[in-house]
Write a protein that binds this DNA or RNA. Structure first.
Length: 576
RNA sequence: CGGGGUGUAGCGCAGCCUGGUAGCGCGUCUGCUUCGGGAGCAGAAGGUCGCAGGUUCGAAUCCUGUCACCCCGACCA
């Protein structure tokens, strides 16, 4: 990569942060001139931003190739027929950006490429001898998100690396899956990110086995829990909870109490003077048109993923007011599990021995007190319904979960035959019998990684890129352009660094030192070589790492070697 | 889609309530002075006040509609 002069480089920095940017990575990427917004969730990458994208891609590419995957490029625009074949033209919903061509044919902008890749492969793969096969690409994906947010964190248009593996059977497919897992560990480690592989729910993509790669960040959208004792880490939607069974509370007499207008947990607990955990939160869901009632402790959230799994329904959503009223015979807000006839009632298992609880009476403006779940809720099923949270028991070892927030930068799925079956992707095995391919898919959010990296690597003055993905590795800053010795020294260092393969920038703009320093910090180049009159007088320049406050005076003849070795160290992950 | 908020110069904002020829800071351009952590002075360029209707002698300001953007929620390979 060529060296570059700041007088040539287009990197428009902003002193003030555009008000649309709330999270730090969004603010800094805008201010430092890496990206600009075109529309909600749609961004342009400026020269520096694009260099970072390519750096990230290069790391991913190397590790994917090393793991035996082959890079290809699938189309962005996809015909509706394929999506109809897999059933997702209907199922995917409004997030799928649909288009018509001039002849009225239906197409979509690819939000993902299972259909396209499976179609490709079914036409070409005939024999088990051609397996295993793992194909990947870097692609611009488009998902018409309900609410794009936080800049690159959740865009509608974004760059993703997606890979798809094809194997003869389940066992081989799991080997492919594990190979990708180790590739992902290598990738995110090299990218300089603090991350966790997390057991995850596989969502509507289908499949049984799945891990998310979460970059730890307070601004992350995902909630994850991790057990400090056994290391089990999972998305809260998936996390297996332990619980203390067997505690049966003392019986209490059932009572009725008027609670005019008290509909929410907060209102009821305030009116009756009981804590929220004494209440039974009763939620009615619409599973394929029939109601199912779920009951969890007042202060807790129902885990919809777990709930949905219990129903195995095509459509599953909170019931509308009409259904709630039909089921309970009362206004919304007064539902309770007691006395509901002919409706499936599932109660969280932690409530099995519960007594002295409060719940809606299925009568407007009335609640029941002293409820004993076992005694009063006829035909109740018990199941794990809770969203895992901080302090909950780990389902693996009984330790206490700690909660984190994360940014999902990667996701690996074992798909099985979900798509190969639907699209008919089969090969002949050794015995000559036709076998449906076993698939896996593996995504990495390339542009989201920029946001995640900045979330993890910044300070009050700007970005602090890890060496591996920094757009340039070194910034040479001559402070006094009028001092010929300063200019000559800086130019010489700049040229020699470039000559030995270091990606170097020189701030040759005729600006005051303060401006140069501020921009240098904002841009986040890992190493800075400052050349000033005072130092040159003594035959020295200053070397400073962006992620440290230490400034080192270095003899002019030694800087190039020093810097080059620091760069090498940073790239190999052994130092900075 | 529900709730909340914002659209005035490249960026950040005031002006709107109480209609009367559009302003401030930063940035940009020119000149001089400055020069180790976002300089000073002087001058200059730059705005369909998101858009469309309406009220009015007159609308950034009042009314109606609409669009865009942001935040919370729901949603989500």
């Amino acid at each position: 990569m060529q060296p570059m002069r700041l007088t040539q480089l287009w990197s428009p920095t902003l002193k003030e942060s555009p008000k649309e940017a709330e999270v730090i990575s969004h603010q800094l990427l805008l201010r430092a001139g890496y990206i600009r917004k075109l529309a909600a969730g749609i961004y342009t990458f400026l020269p520096l931003g694009w260099r970072v994208v390519r750096k990230v891609e290069d790391v991913i590419r190397e590790e994917m190739d090393r793991a035996g995957a082959q890079e290809i490029r699938l189309p962005t625009v996809q015909p509706a027929e394929l999506w109809e074949e897999s059933g997702r033209w209907e199922k995917y919903g409004p997030e799928l950006m649909r288009l018509k061509d001039r002849k009225g044919g239906n197409f979509c902008l690819g939000p993902t490429h299972e259909e396209v890749i499976t179609d490709l492969v079914r036409g070409e793969l005939r024999s088990y001898r051609q397996l295993p096969l793992n194909l990947y690409q870097f692609q611009t994906k488009f998902r018409d998100e309900l609410r794009p947010r936080a800049g690159l964190m959740r865009g509608r248009e974004f760059i993703m690396k997606d890979a798809y593996s094809f194997d003869l059977d389940e066992e081989a497919a799991r080997e492919s899956y594990e190979r990708m897992r180790s590739a992902y560990d290598a990738i995110f480690t090299r990218l300089g990110l603090a991350f966790r592989p997390v057991e995850a729910d596989s969502g509507n993509i289908g499949g049984s086995l799945s891990h998310e790669y979460q970059v730890l960040a307070e601004t992350g959208e995902d909630a994850i829990v991790s057990c400090p004792d056994c290391g089990y880490t999972a998305n809260v939607e998936k996390a297996e909870l332990g619980f203390d069974a067997g505690s049966v509370e003392e019986p209490t007499p059932l009572g009725r109490v008027d609670t005019p207008g008290a509909r929410t947990i907060d209102e009821v607990s305030a009116m009756l003077g009981v804590t929220a955990d004494r209440l039974l939160k009763t939620l009615v869901y619409d599973a394929d048109g029939s109601p199912v009632v779920f009951v969890v402790p007042g202060g807790r959230d129902l885990n919809e993923v777990k709930a949905e799994r219990l129903c195995s329904a095509e459509s599953f959503a909170p019931a509308g007011a009409a259904m709630v009223e039909a089921v309970t015979g009362a206004a919304v807000g007064f539902a309770g599990p007691v006395g509901l006839d002919g409706v499936r009632v599932v109660v969280d298992r932690t409530l099995e021995g519960a007594a002295d609880r409060v719940c809606g009476a299925n009568e407007t403006d009335v609640h029941l007190t002293g409820v004993m779940v076992r005694r009063d809720v006829e035909g109740a099923e018990f199941a794990d319904l809770l969203e895992a949270g901080d302090g909950d028991r780990c389902g693996r070892c009984g330790g206490r979960f700690a909660a984190f927030r994360g940014i999902e930068v990667g996701h690996v799925f074992h798909l099985g035959t979900r798509y190969s079956e639907a699209l008919g992707a089969r090969v002949l095995d050794e015995e000559g019998t036709e076998v449906t391919l076993s698939m896996g898919c593996y995504g990495i959010g390339v542009t989201r990684i920029l946001a995640a990296a900045v979330e993890q690597h910044h300070d009050g003055d700007g970005i602090r890129w890890p060496m591996v993905i920094a757009p340039y590795q070194v910034l040479v800053v001559p402070l006094q352009l009028r001092d010929e010795r300063v200019v000559a020294t800086a130019e010489s260092i700049y040229e020699r660094l470039g000559a030995c393969g270091v990606e170097v920038l020189i701030d040759d703009r005729d600006l005051r030192p303060g401006n140069k320093f501020k921009d240098a910090d904002l841009l986040g180049i890992p190493l800075r070589v400052t050349v000033g009159s005072r130092g040159v007088e003594k035959g020295q320049v200053e070397l400073k790492a962006r992620d440290s406050d230490d400034v080192h005076d270095v003899a002019i003849e030694e800087v190039v070697d020093r810097v080059a070795s620091l760069v090498r160290g940073g790239l190999s992950g052994t130092g900075r």
